[in-house]
């Protein structure tokens, strides 16, 4: 993962497939989305990008901490 210094976004390399993905959000904002602090409109490209990263196991939603497992 690389977070660009101009806060324009983050890019991810999927080490399994070799695919590169980007999210046009700063690292801090992505963390807020993952923790549920920011809720994105389902149709935005950011939302789609983050969901695809979660599906590929590159990002993990942070709400796991609430479970007892």
């Amino acid at each position: 993962m690389h977070s660009f210094s101009d806060q324009s976004g983050c890019v991810f390399l999927d080490v399994h497939s070799g695919e590169t993905l980007s999210v046009l959000m700063s690292e801090a904002d992505i963390l807020k989305v993952l923790s549920g602090e920011i809720i994105l409109d389902k149709k935005t490209t950011q939302n789609i990008a983050i969901r695809s990263l979660i599906q590929k196991n590159i990002l993990l939603p942070l709400d796991c901490k609430n479970t007892d497992v």
Binding site: S8, V11, V15, S22, L24
Partner: peptide, 28 residues
């Protein structure tokens, strides 16, 4: 912005998929 410029460079890289991590870190 840097994210867009990066993604455009990736699209234009010939051997990006072969070099993987090396190409990713070089271009970032």
């Amino acid at each position: 912005d840097k994210t867009q410029a990066f993604m455009q460079l990736v699209d234009n890289a010939f051997n990006y998929s072969v070099l993987r991590e090396t190409a990713f870190s070089t271009l970032t």
